[in-house]
Design a binder for these strands. Structure first.
Lengths: 119, 119
DNA sequence: TCAGGCAGTTTCCTAGAGGAACCTGGTTTC
DNA sequence: GAAACCAGGTTCCTCTAGGAAACTGCCTGA
């Protein structure tokens, strides 16, 4: 009995897969959510501010991820002409659209931890 | 001028970081969202059904990710005693709590794609 | 002048994520 | 008996994400 061809993926399914891939390509990596979450909370942070807030991240990763996020227009980077040059990172309007996702994710993570420690 | 000690991370920040780490430890990887999304949409799917729905995944990854998800109680695996043994994967009540996140993620991904192609 | 802060960059290294292909073992249809 | 379908497991291989540590360059206050 011949089975339907390999490609019987429904269209809504295809669309969802592509959408999730798009989102993940921008948000992949260990640190993006943390950086975005931090910048959503406290706007205008410097490089060292972020280092202090995001426990565990190193300078290389932070700088690389910041570049990624800037390239994708989720954050902005402005160099201030102060005496020791400082830089301000801030979330963009576009980046703010991620707030619900990050909030949900954090909420779910906390609930998950509770449910695990309970059992 | 001495700066405040390294650890001046606010508490809400620490909590968020831990929550996001918890969530990511369970949801990390290229395929978990796809699998969960597919199982939320159509309940009770077999191994080959999932292969067909999730374009691009291979047997190794699918089987490994399914084990992970089952271990974390997000899906169930039931072996049916049919003539050629079939298996049914389904989402759990717990797994369903991820629905808002996955929906949001897919929504965001689609919107992101639109905004990128527009510019 | 020298330690320390800011903002990174560069190099080196390794574990693990993930793909391709092949194998098993049972069953049913042609 | 050959071919095909289900449900995986196994092996081999590659690539890169990510950490550690060291270095740069500028500025400032003690």
């Amino acid at each position: 009995m011949k089975k339907k061809p390999i490609v019987n993926c429904t269209e809504i399914c295809q669309v969802r897969i592509q959408a999730i891939n798009d989102a993940m390509s921008v948000l992949s990596g260990k640190w993006k959510f943390h950086i975005l979450g931090t910048l959503i909370e406290g706007d205008k942070l410097g490089f060292m501010d972020l280092m202090r807030e995001i426990e565990g991240i190193g300078t290389k990763m932070l700088s690389k991820e910041l570049q990624d996020l800037e390239m994708n227009q989720l954050i902005t980077r402005t160099v201030m002409n102060t005496k020791p040059v400082t830089v301000q990172y801030a979330i963009t309007k576009h980046g703010k659209t991620l707030e619900p996702i990050i909030k949900e994710l954090a909420k779910w993570g906390a609930a998950y931890r509770d449910s695990m420690t309970a059992s």
